[in-house]
Protein backbone atom coordinates (compact mmCIF):
# COMPACT_ATOMS: atom_id res chain seq x y z
CA UNK A 1 0.00 0.00 0.00
CA UNK A 2 1.39 3.36 -0.95
CA UNK A 3 0.13 4.81 2.35
CA UNK A 4 2.65 2.78 4.26
CA UNK A 5 5.58 3.81 2.08
CA UNK A 6 8.09 6.33 3.44
CA UNK A 7 7.73 9.86 2.03
CA UNK A 8 10.77 9.42 -0.23
CA UNK A 9 9.13 6.47 -2.02
CA UNK A 10 5.66 7.94 -2.22
CA UNK A 11 4.58 9.10 -5.68
CA UNK A 12 4.32 12.89 -5.93
CA UNK A 13 1.05 12.86 -7.84
CA UNK A 14 -1.08 9.98 -6.61
CA UNK A 15 -3.08 8.24 -9.29
CA UNK A 16 -6.60 7.02 -8.57
CA UNK A 17 -5.16 3.63 -7.77
CA UNK A 18 -2.64 4.96 -5.24
CA UNK A 19 -4.91 7.62 -3.78
CA UNK A 20 -5.62 6.82 -0.14
CA UNK A 21 -8.97 5.31 0.69
CA UNK A 22 -11.58 7.47 2.36
CA UNK A 23 -13.76 10.39 1.41
CA UNK A 24 -12.48 12.58 -1.42
CA UNK A 25 -11.64 16.21 -0.70
CA UNK A 26 -14.46 18.62 0.09
CA UNK A 27 -17.19 16.07 0.33
CA UNK A 28 -19.17 17.18 3.35
CA UNK A 29 -19.94 14.45 5.79
CA UNK A 30 -23.17 15.10 7.65
CA UNK A 31 -24.56 18.15 5.87
CA UNK A 32 -26.44 20.32 8.33
CA UNK A 33 -30.20 20.44 8.07
CA UNK A 34 -31.67 23.54 6.38
CA UNK A 35 -31.44 26.55 8.70
CA UNK A 36 -35.11 27.51 8.32
CA UNK A 37 -35.61 26.80 12.02
CA UNK A 38 -32.88 29.30 12.84
CA UNK A 39 -34.56 32.00 10.76
CA UNK A 40 -37.92 31.28 12.45
CA UNK A 41 -36.37 31.55 15.94
CA UNK A 42 -34.67 34.84 15.07
CA UNK A 43 -37.82 36.36 13.55
CA UNK A 44 -40.00 35.23 16.50
CA UNK A 45 -37.56 36.73 19.01
CA UNK A 46 -37.38 40.02 17.12
CA UNK A 47 -41.18 40.20 16.74
CA UNK A 48 -41.66 39.32 20.43
CA UNK A 49 -39.19 41.98 21.52
CA UNK A 50 -40.95 44.55 19.36
CA UNK A 51 -44.57 43.82 20.34
CA UNK A 52 -44.07 42.91 24.00
CA UNK A 53 -40.97 44.97 24.75
CA UNK A 54 -40.66 48.47 26.22
CA UNK A 55 -42.76 51.30 24.81
CA UNK A 56 -39.82 53.14 23.25
CA UNK A 57 -39.46 50.30 20.73
CA UNK A 58 -42.58 51.59 19.02
CA UNK A 59 -41.72 55.28 18.95
CA UNK A 60 -41.58 56.36 15.31
CA UNK A 61 -38.93 59.06 15.75
CA UNK A 62 -36.68 56.70 17.60
CA UNK A 63 -36.97 54.05 14.91
CA UNK A 64 -36.28 56.53 12.14
CA UNK A 65 -32.62 56.67 13.07
CA UNK A 66 -32.17 53.18 14.50
CA UNK A 67 -34.16 50.99 12.17
CA UNK A 68 -32.77 52.11 8.81
CA UNK A 69 -29.24 50.86 9.40
CA UNK A 70 -30.43 47.64 10.99
CA UNK A 71 -32.99 47.08 8.25
CA UNK A 72 -30.32 47.40 5.57
CA UNK A 73 -28.18 44.76 7.32
CA UNK A 74 -31.20 42.52 7.85
CA UNK A 75 -32.37 42.75 4.23
CA UNK A 76 -28.85 42.09 2.90
CA UNK A 77 -28.57 39.07 5.24
CA UNK A 78 -31.88 37.71 3.97
CA UNK A 79 -30.83 38.16 0.33
CA UNK A 80 -27.65 36.15 1.00
CA UNK A 81 -29.48 33.49 3.02
CA UNK A 82 -32.14 32.97 0.34
CA UNK A 83 -29.42 32.54 -2.30
CA UNK A 84 -27.67 29.94 -0.12
CA UNK A 85 -30.88 27.98 0.43
CA UNK A 86 -31.73 28.06 -3.27
CA UNK A 87 -28.21 26.92 -4.18
CA UNK A 88 -28.51 23.96 -1.83
CA UNK A 89 -31.57 22.74 -3.71
CA UNK A 90 -29.51 22.43 -6.87
CA UNK A 91 -28.26 24.42 -9.83
CA UNK A 92 -24.81 25.73 -10.64
CA UNK A 93 -23.30 29.15 -10.27
CA UNK A 94 -20.72 30.63 -12.58
CA UNK A 95 -17.64 31.95 -10.81
CA UNK A 96 -15.29 34.00 -12.98
CA UNK A 97 -11.61 33.09 -13.09
CA UNK A 98 -9.59 34.69 -10.30
CA UNK A 99 -5.87 34.49 -11.22
CA UNK A 100 -4.65 34.79 -7.63
CA UNK A 101 -6.67 31.78 -6.55
CA UNK A 102 -5.78 29.74 -9.62
CA UNK A 103 -2.14 30.43 -8.72
CA UNK A 104 -2.52 28.51 -5.45
CA UNK A 105 -2.28 25.19 -7.32
CA UNK A 106 0.71 26.51 -9.26
CA UNK A 107 2.48 27.57 -6.06
CA UNK A 108 1.92 24.20 -4.40
CA UNK A 109 3.08 22.41 -7.57
CA UNK A 110 6.25 24.52 -7.69
CA UNK A 111 7.11 23.66 -4.07
CA UNK A 112 6.53 19.99 -4.87
CA UNK A 113 8.84 20.11 -7.90
CA UNK A 114 11.56 21.92 -5.95
CA UNK A 115 11.19 19.64 -2.92
CA UNK A 116 11.05 22.67 -0.63
CA UNK A 117 8.42 23.63 1.93
CA UNK A 118 5.58 26.14 1.79
CA UNK A 119 4.91 28.81 4.42
CA UNK A 120 1.42 30.06 5.14
CA UNK A 121 0.95 33.13 7.35
CA UNK A 122 -2.48 33.67 8.90
CA UNK A 123 -1.69 37.33 9.60
CA UNK A 124 -2.20 39.28 12.78
CA UNK A 125 -5.86 38.51 13.36
CA UNK A 126 -7.33 36.48 16.17
CA UNK A 127 -10.20 34.02 15.91
CA UNK A 128 -12.43 36.27 13.79
CA UNK A 129 -14.23 36.15 10.45
CA UNK A 130 -11.24 37.39 8.45
CA UNK A 131 -8.80 34.89 9.92
CA UNK A 132 -11.30 32.04 9.72
CA UNK A 133 -11.51 32.69 5.98
CA UNK A 134 -7.69 32.66 5.85
CA UNK A 135 -7.72 29.34 7.72
CA UNK A 136 -10.19 27.91 5.20
CA UNK A 137 -7.80 28.83 2.36
CA UNK A 138 -4.87 27.44 4.37
CA UNK A 139 -6.66 24.12 4.74
CA UNK A 140 -7.20 23.97 0.99
CA UNK A 141 -3.44 24.46 0.52
CA UNK A 142 -2.69 21.84 3.18
CA UNK A 143 -5.04 19.29 1.59
CA UNK A 144 -3.44 19.89 -1.78
CA UNK A 145 0.05 19.63 -0.32
CA UNK A 146 -0.80 16.39 1.50
CA UNK A 147 -1.61 14.78 -1.85
CA UNK A 148 1.80 15.73 -3.19
CA UNK A 149 3.71 14.99 0.03
CA UNK A 150 4.80 18.63 0.36
CA UNK A 151 5.40 20.26 3.73
CA UNK A 152 3.32 23.31 4.74
CA UNK A 153 4.42 25.43 7.70
CA UNK A 154 1.44 27.35 9.08
CA UNK A 155 2.17 30.27 11.41
CA UNK A 156 -0.07 32.35 13.65
CA UNK A 157 0.21 35.23 16.08
CA UNK A 158 -2.79 34.20 18.17
CA UNK A 159 -2.65 31.25 20.58
CA UNK A 160 -6.41 30.60 20.34
CA UNK A 161 -6.15 30.44 16.59
CA UNK A 162 -3.09 28.21 16.95
CA UNK A 163 -5.14 25.64 18.88
CA UNK A 164 -7.89 25.64 16.20
CA UNK A 165 -5.43 25.58 13.28
CA UNK A 166 -3.42 22.73 14.82
CA UNK A 167 -6.54 20.61 15.23
CA UNK A 168 -7.89 21.47 11.76
CA UNK A 169 -4.59 20.62 10.02
CA UNK A 170 -4.31 17.38 12.00
CA UNK A 171 -7.84 16.52 10.90
CA UNK A 172 -6.94 17.25 7.27
CA UNK A 173 -4.06 14.74 7.45
CA UNK A 174 -6.32 12.15 9.10
CA UNK A 175 -9.06 12.65 6.48
CA UNK A 176 -6.48 12.18 3.73
CA UNK A 177 -5.42 8.87 5.29
CA UNK A 178 -1.97 10.09 6.32
CA UNK A 179 -2.14 10.94 10.03
CA UNK A 180 1.46 9.71 10.47
CA UNK A 181 2.71 12.45 8.11
CA UNK A 182 1.39 15.24 10.34
CA UNK A 183 4.22 17.06 12.07
CA UNK A 184 3.01 19.11 15.05
CA UNK A 185 5.99 21.49 14.61
CA UNK A 186 4.60 22.60 11.24
CA UNK A 187 1.76 24.54 12.87
CA UNK A 188 3.47 27.24 14.86
CA UNK A 189 2.58 30.00 17.25
CA UNK A 190 5.49 32.39 16.74
CA UNK A 191 4.77 35.34 19.03
CA UNK A 192 1.88 37.58 20.01
CA UNK A 193 3.88 40.72 19.17
CA UNK A 194 3.65 42.16 15.66
CA UNK A 195 7.33 42.63 14.83
CA UNK A 196 8.51 39.62 16.80
CA UNK A 197 6.13 37.61 14.60
CA UNK A 198 7.48 39.33 11.49
CA UNK A 199 11.11 38.66 12.39
CA UNK A 200 10.31 35.03 13.20
CA UNK A 201 8.60 34.64 9.81
CA UNK A 202 11.51 36.26 7.98
CA UNK A 203 13.96 33.92 9.75
CA UNK A 204 11.77 30.92 8.98
CA UNK A 205 11.57 31.73 5.27
CA UNK A 206 15.33 32.19 5.01
CA UNK A 207 16.23 29.07 7.01
CA UNK A 208 13.76 26.80 5.21
CA UNK A 209 14.37 28.41 1.78
CA UNK A 210 10.67 28.11 1.08
CA UNK A 211 9.51 27.65 -2.50
CA UNK A 212 6.08 29.24 -1.98
CA UNK A 213 4.72 31.70 0.52
CA UNK A 214 1.05 32.41 1.18
CA UNK A 215 -0.16 35.37 3.22
CA UNK A 216 -3.87 35.51 3.98
CA UNK A 217 -5.58 37.36 6.82
CA UNK A 218 -5.19 40.72 8.50
CA UNK A 219 -1.89 42.44 7.88
CA UNK A 220 -0.51 45.78 8.94
CA UNK A 221 2.98 47.32 8.82
CA UNK A 222 4.67 43.91 8.69
CA UNK A 223 3.07 43.00 5.35
CA UNK A 224 5.91 44.37 3.24
CA UNK A 225 8.58 42.91 5.54
CA UNK A 226 7.10 39.44 5.02
CA UNK A 227 6.54 39.90 1.29
CA UNK A 228 10.08 41.20 0.68
CA UNK A 229 11.58 38.34 2.69
CA UNK A 230 9.65 35.90 0.49
CA UNK A 231 10.89 37.75 -2.57
CA UNK A 232 14.50 37.52 -1.36
CA UNK A 233 14.35 33.73 -1.08
CA UNK A 234 12.75 33.53 -4.54
CA UNK A 235 9.43 32.15 -3.35
CA UNK A 236 6.30 32.40 -5.47
CA UNK A 237 3.98 34.52 -3.36
CA UNK A 238 0.19 34.70 -3.18
CA UNK A 239 -1.38 37.19 -0.78
CA UNK A 240 -4.88 38.27 0.14
CA UNK A 241 -6.13 40.65 2.77
CA UNK A 242 -9.23 42.71 3.47
CA UNK A 243 -6.97 45.36 5.05
CA UNK A 244 -7.16 47.77 2.10
CA UNK A 245 -4.18 49.87 3.28
CA UNK A 246 -1.85 46.88 2.83
CA UNK A 247 -3.04 45.81 -0.63
CA UNK A 248 -0.60 48.16 -2.46
CA UNK A 249 2.35 46.60 -0.63
CA UNK A 250 1.24 43.11 -1.56
CA UNK A 251 0.62 44.16 -5.17
CA UNK A 252 4.15 45.59 -5.31
CA UNK A 253 5.94 42.65 -3.72
CA UNK A 254 3.89 39.51 -4.45
CA UNK A 255 3.29 37.53 -7.63
CA UNK A 256 -0.49 37.35 -7.11
CA UNK A 257 -2.73 39.43 -4.88
CA UNK A 258 -6.35 38.80 -4.06
CA UNK A 259 -8.22 42.09 -3.76
CA UNK A 260 -11.45 43.07 -2.07
CA UNK A 261 -14.30 40.56 -1.92
CA UNK A 262 -12.25 38.06 -3.95
CA UNK A 263 -10.85 37.28 -0.51
CA UNK A 264 -14.23 36.00 0.70
CA UNK A 265 -14.93 34.31 -2.64
CA UNK A 266 -11.84 32.13 -2.25
CA UNK A 267 -13.45 29.11 -0.61
CA UNK A 268 -16.36 29.11 -3.08
CA UNK A 269 -13.92 29.38 -5.99
CA UNK A 270 -11.63 26.64 -4.71
CA UNK A 271 -14.25 24.13 -3.62
CA UNK A 272 -17.26 24.93 -5.90
CA UNK A 273 -19.34 23.77 -2.97
CA UNK A 274 -23.09 24.63 -3.38
CA UNK A 275 -23.50 26.48 -0.06
CA UNK A 276 -20.44 28.64 -0.71
CA UNK A 277 -21.32 29.29 -4.36
CA UNK A 278 -24.87 30.23 -3.32
CA UNK A 279 -23.44 32.60 -0.77
CA UNK A 280 -21.38 34.21 -3.53
CA UNK A 281 -24.48 34.66 -5.68
CA UNK A 282 -26.24 36.20 -2.68
CA UNK A 283 -23.36 38.63 -2.14
CA UNK A 284 -23.58 39.71 -5.78
CA UNK A 285 -27.33 40.26 -5.51
CA UNK A 286 -26.83 42.26 -2.32
CA UNK A 287 -24.24 44.36 -4.13
CA UNK A 288 -26.71 45.00 -6.95
CA UNK A 289 -29.28 46.06 -4.35
CA UNK A 290 -26.82 48.45 -2.73
CA UNK A 291 -25.88 49.84 -6.13
CA UNK A 292 -29.55 50.41 -6.95
CA UNK A 293 -30.06 52.30 -3.66
CA UNK A 294 -26.97 54.44 -4.34
CA UNK A 295 -28.10 55.24 -7.90
CA UNK A 296 -31.61 56.06 -6.66
CA UNK A 297 -30.17 58.36 -4.00
CA UNK A 298 -27.91 60.13 -6.51
CA UNK A 299 -30.86 60.58 -8.94
CA UNK A 300 -33.23 61.93 -6.28
CA UNK A 301 -30.72 64.38 -4.85
CA UNK A 302 -29.78 65.56 -8.37
CA UNK A 303 -33.44 66.07 -9.36
CA UNK A 304 -34.22 67.89 -6.10
CA UNK A 305 -31.24 70.16 -6.61
CA UNK A 306 -32.32 70.95 -10.17
CA UNK A 307 -35.99 71.67 -9.39
CA UNK A 308 -35.31 73.46 -6.09
CA UNK A 309 -36.88 71.07 -3.51
CA UNK A 310 -40.63 71.96 -3.56
CA UNK A 311 -42.66 71.25 -0.39
CA UNK A 312 -44.60 68.51 -2.18
CA UNK A 313 -41.41 66.49 -2.49
CA UNK A 314 -40.44 66.81 1.18
CA UNK A 315 -40.98 63.06 1.61
CA UNK A 316 -38.09 62.45 -0.80
CA UNK A 317 -35.82 64.54 1.38
CA UNK A 318 -37.05 62.67 4.46
CA UNK A 319 -36.33 59.36 2.74
CA UNK A 320 -32.82 60.48 1.89
CA UNK A 321 -32.45 61.71 5.48
CA UNK A 322 -33.19 58.21 6.80
CA UNK A 323 -30.06 56.88 5.11
CA UNK A 324 -28.00 59.92 6.06
CA UNK A 325 -28.93 59.64 9.76
CA UNK A 326 -28.82 55.84 9.96
CA UNK A 327 -26.99 54.51 13.01
Amino acid sequence: MSDRLPDSHRPLVPSDRTRPAGPPDYVRVGMPSPPWWAVVIVLLLLAGAFFFGPHYYRTADYWKTFATGRTVVFVLSLVILVAILRARRGGRAFVRRIPGLTAIDEAVGRATEMGRPITFSLGLGGLDIITLQALAIALHVVRLAIRFGTRVILTTIDPTLYAVADEAVHEAYTAAGRPESFNRDDVRFLSDRQFAYASAMVGLMHREQVASNFMFGQFFAESLILAEAGNQVGAIQVAGTPTTTQIPFFVAACDYTIIGDEYYAATAYLTREPVLSGSLVGQDRAKMLLLAVILLGISLVTVLTLIGSPQSLQWVKDLAGLFTNAK
Binding site: I80, P242, Y264, K287
Partner: peptide, 25 residues
Protein backbone atom coordinates in the same frame (compact mmCIF):
# COMPACT_ATOMS: atom_id res chain seq x y z
CA UNK B 1 -17.65 44.05 -1.21
CA UNK B 2 -15.61 43.21 1.88
CA UNK B 3 -18.48 44.06 4.20
CA UNK B 4 -20.90 41.84 2.31
CA UNK B 5 -18.32 39.06 2.14
CA UNK B 6 -17.78 39.24 5.90
CA UNK B 7 -21.56 39.28 6.46
CA UNK B 8 -22.03 36.18 4.31
CA UNK B 9 -19.12 34.38 6.00
CA UNK B 10 -20.47 35.29 9.46
CA UNK B 11 -23.89 33.92 8.54
CA UNK B 12 -22.42 30.69 7.19
CA UNK B 13 -20.51 30.16 10.43
CA UNK B 14 -23.44 31.18 12.64
CA UNK B 15 -25.80 28.74 10.90
CA UNK B 16 -23.10 26.02 10.77
CA UNK B 17 -23.10 25.93 6.98
CA UNK B 18 -19.31 26.33 6.80
CA UNK B 19 -18.29 23.35 8.97
CA UNK B 20 -16.98 21.08 6.25
CA UNK B 21 -14.36 23.67 5.38
CA UNK B 22 -12.56 23.18 8.68
CA UNK B 23 -13.60 19.84 10.11
CA UNK B 24 -14.99 17.59 7.40
CA UNK B 25 -15.42 14.47 9.46
Amino acid sequence: GLGLGALAMAMRIWLSLERGTYFGQ
